[in-house]
Simulated assay, not measured.
Amino acid sequence: MSKVKYIRVSTEEQNTARQEVNAKEFSTIYIDKTSGSVQFTERKEAKKLLADIESGIVTEIHISSIDRLGRNIIDILTVVEFLTQKSIKLFVENIGMYSLIDNKPNPSFKMIVSVLGNVAEMERLNMLERQRQGIELAKAKGTYTGRLFGSKMSDAEVLIKYKSVVKELKNGESLRRASKIGGCSLGTAQKIQRLLNPAVI
């Protein structure tokens, strides 16, 4: 029986160090590098965690904040309810609260998590809307280049960072294979292909 921690960051490039500061307190740490919009049950490490719960080797789970479980309030509450049914204590570090107290649901926890879950969902929707508006504005100005949202890397830096993707594409491999080998999204592989073949539209 063990206390574990679940960590999620949105991209491969993001650092997990902040969420791992108390790593020594846990028997196992599960780290997913995927968007919060991906359902918890569809994530690679989350699946391992769920399997360990079913095996009875996990009794307590810590997360840094509730949006590590998801950006959709329904998904978040579904995970919390599942853990409650399995008598798994969930501790959310940034609010310092447990989902269970003396093996009974903590009513304050559920109320606060519902509020924070709604905030996380609204933040994601607002981010997507700002992104859409930014792209539309750039297109209207004729300055849109298809740069990845949130990316600050120059074209040269992208090519250096994803050398394996460049190699695969130069060898004539498919975009899907190149993205898989290089550990990047299909969109990033497409961007690299455009950089390698600027004349191709």
Rank of each mutant, 00 (worst) to 15 (best):
N197C: 00
Y162N: 09
D67Y: 04
E129F: 02
V158Q: 03
D67T: 08
V9N: 05
L148K: 01
N197T: 09
S114Q: 13
Q14S: 02
G117F: 08
N126T: 05
E54V: 07
A120W: 03
S99T: 02
V113R: 02
L125V: 12
V58S: 09
F40L: 06
D67F: 09
N94K: 11
E20H: 08
A17W: 01
E136Y: 02
I61G: 03
A199T: 08
I63W: 07
V80S: 03
S2T: 14
M111Q: 06
S37P: 00
T59L: 11
Q19V: 02
G56D: 06
E93S: 15
G70C: 04
E81D: 15
V80L: 08
V38T: 15
E157S: 08
S55C: 02
L196I: 04
Y162Q: 00
V115Y: 13
G172Q: 07
K89M: 03
V165S: 00
K170I: 04
G150E: 11
E121P: 12
S64P: 02
K161F: 07
V38C: 09
L196T: 05
D75H: 05
V92R: 02
K191H: 13
E93Y: 10
S64K: 14
E20W: 04
K33W: 03
K104P: 03
L49M: 15
V115M: 13
K5P: 02
F109I: 07
E13A: 15
S164I: 06
N15I: 13
K44V: 13
P198T: 07
